[in-house]
């Protein structure tokens, strides 16, 4: 039962990484798009492609939080009392990002738009970095069972830095690939090339960070390294294959499976983390079993997830199809 809930939780983590992550990545490209004139077209594309979907994508985070705190409440408080600083930073980023994006949309004057745009962009870096650092801290067992771990040391170590940087780079990579496809769909070859180059660069960066990560984990998080190189090895290899395949598709200007391979590469990395972590929730000191809520609560969570499967998923598909067909985008 607790395994099912853990899987449901992980589905949420993956969805947030793929969808919410791409929205944050779009913020990264917004930040680096240059001055108001030069960055107008990429910014416009970013605006129109994430405008209709970012709130729905953001909701995956809420989903993860509520499943975690209802299903594994002691682990939740251990994490929040230890990693409150990165959590606060992530929260700050979320408020600034959401508010600034919504406001920019409605602001009329360029200086206002510039202010909101800058806030949107900077917070798009802050939040993925913080979440990556949190993941690194959890994965390397820096969160004590009783909570109240060291507020700074718990996320100021190589694995957390790796997690944070990897998160930022991966988000940027996903976003560039998605935006590349969007630009092609909008029949804008110039913009498509623009994001293709950026996707390639971010892909190379993500690959480089991952390779560096092998050494970081080897010296800083032995158990994680061991499990990633044993039980989770197929997933890691799969991620590498997908990543390379996506780069190849980008290079050869193909459109088929482009987004899918990029998403699969990221999803497999996250899965690898999950498999390496199993059956522990925190380091090697708190198992899923020990942290789980009573049976009835877990049952409720599974029922809620099933109901979500039949109500939320079709609605999401509808939203994405409408947005994808350009029916919801702003002209």
């Amino acid at each position: 039962m607790q395994d099912t809930v853990a899987i449901l939780l992980f589905v949420g983590v993956i969805a947030y990484a793929l969808l919410g992550g791409a929205d944050f990545g779009a913020g990264f490209w917004d930040l680096t798009a240059g001055g108001a004139e030069r960055g107008r077209r990429p910014r416009h594309l970013i605006d129109t492609s994430i405008g209709p979907v970012w709130e729905a994508n953001h909701t995956w985070l809420i989903y993860c939080l509520v499943i975690l705190w209802s299903g594994f409440p002691t682990a939740f408080t251990a994490i929040t009392t230890t990693l409150y600083l990165p959590l606060i930073l992530a929260g700050l980023g979320i408020v600034l990002r959401g508010a600034a994006f919504a406001f920019r949309h409605n602001a009329m004057r360029t200086p206002e738009q510039r202010l909101y745009g800058a806030l949107f962009a900077v917070s798009s870096l802050l939040t993925p970095y913080s979440f990556g650092a949190i993941a690194g801290a959890i994965a390397s067992g820096r969160v004590p069972m009783g909570g109240n771990g060291n507020a700074v040391a718990s996320w100021n170590h190589p694995t957390s830095h790796l997690g944070g940087i990897l998160a930022v780079v991966v988000c940027a990579y996903l976003a560039a690939v998605y935006l590349h496809v969007e630009a092609r769909r909008a029949d804008d070859p110039g913009l498509a090339r623009y994001f293709r180059d950026r996707g390639l660069a971010a892909g190379v960066a993500a690959g480089a960070v991952s390779v560096a990560g092998i050494f970081v984990l080897h010296s800083d998080a032995e158990r994680l390294f061991h499990d990633l190189s044993h039980v989770a090895l197929p997933l890691v290899i799969g991620a590498a294959v997908c990543g390379v395949a996506c780069m190849f598709l980008l290079l050869t200007n193909r459109r088929v499976l482009l987004r899918q391979t990029a998403a699969a590469a990221v999803a497999l990395v996250v899965c690898g983390w999950g498999v390496a972590q199993y059956p522990y929730l925190l380091g090697t000191h708190l198992t899923l079993d020990e942290a789980a809520s009573p049976r009835a609560t877990l049952q409720v969570l599974i029922v809620v997830a099933c109901v979500a499967g039949v109500t939320v998923l079709p609605s999401l598909v509808l939203l994405f199809r409408l947005a994808g067909r350009g029916r919801l985008t702003i002209h």
Partner: peptide, 14 residues
């Protein structure tokens, strides 16, 4: 949240 999350928390999942 730690002690009563199992009860107090699940309405939030709904």
């Amino acid at each position: 949240m730690g002690t009563y999350g199992a009860a107090f928390g699940f309405p939030f999942s709904i």
